[in-house]
Design a binder for these strands. Sequence first.
DNA 1: TTATTAAAAACGACCGGTCGTATTTTTAAA
DNA 2: TTTAAAAATACGACCGGTCGTTTTTAATAA
Lengths: 198, 198
Amino acid sequence: MSKLSKKEFNREGLLNQGVVFFMNQGYHGTGLQEILDAVNVPKGSFYNYFNSKEEFGAAVIQHYIEPFIARLSAHLQQSGSDALGAIRRYFAELIVELEENQFKGGCLLGSLMGEIGSTSDVCQQSLQSAIARYRDLLQSGLAQAQQQGSVRTDKTPEEMADLLINAWQGALLRMQIEKSSAPVKQCCHDLLDDFFIP
Amino acid sequence: MSKLSKKEFNREGLLNQGVVFFMNQGYHGTGLQEILDAVNVPKGSFYNYFNSKEEFGAAVIQHYIEPFIARLSAHLQQSGSDALGAIRRYFAELIVELEENQFKGGCLLGSLMGEIGSTSDVCQQSLQSAIARYRDLLQSGLAQAQQQGSVRTDKTPEEMADLLINAWQGALLRMQIEKSSAPVKQCCHDLLDDFFIP
DNA sequence: TTATTAAAAACGACCGGTCGTATTTTTAAA
DNA sequence: TTTAAAAATACGACCGGTCGTTTTTAATAA
């Protein structure tokens, strides 16, 4: 493996483990050492990859949201004339994975919003942009569904996307402490099978 | 002031400041020293009041939820035949206070669920019971409103209470990073003025 | 005196971050 | 193409400081 790609490999590893540790133990509850040990990167090398823990946190946030956007995007793209179905299937997939993980994870964005959303400007901005991107995608999916007649049109897609994201975040928190997927299932059902239907 | 009541006074002060600091900086982001300094209690004395930071955190959670339950309860009690109006006014009051606080706070329960909901059993249980009490109260209010004909009856009050709490929590997180009360206002409007209406 | 509580001092572990230095990679001149 | 200078990266020891907790001492009550 060439040296250049090894650097990128290590960087990716740090971001991946950052997601895992921050999700399980929170930002302040996770020491850099834990992450570095997990990827076998020496302490002194960390600052060749990132300028500070805070900037690392911001990068982890962006790294975290990417696959979610890619997956939702893929579902929407291949859904043809059933955008609402694509959204339903996307969330159903997430629920399956949450169950597989025994409800340990939740959503990194939700956890970090509460923990450092008010204290770290850098991370706050990262959270803002991550959620905005996710929201915009969901919004476009709901707009498609409106044109297809499967979603009510007396609410803006923006409004519904926000409600769905917020309720989903809250349901994920509940899921964590109740160790049950009931909250997230209920949430999807209430909105996608009822409130959003014309 | 007698010694006994001074001890109770200090204990209350610690809990109050615990709410403030945990809300602003998170659990792991707050050192005991900060809280102790704010209440002028020596560090060595902390363990005369609480057995550990973790148990202190669990106590802070219970201490935090109390006034919310009392206020919602009061609104419902004096609402007569307009339980839905009481719930609306309760949340409207909360929104005013959030705006006064410049969206700094959010909800301690939401923040701590994400940060330590999966790692601290003691706090997890405390969060569970705090939310359950709050939910039950909201549920009873919604049941009243159903009997009064102002809320739809094809959904259980439990289901609606959960959705309201979850969406509210998510909206509070959004409010924090967007520094705007728009998310919480939208949330209340979507549910209390639309989805819950028969 | 003895028993009980408050508080000070001390504990080891760990925090994020910096340091000097060794090694490698890139750049540019020859 | 070879070589020399410069820039970037790797790395572990180490920084001052803070963490939550424990032990020891001082003060108070019985």
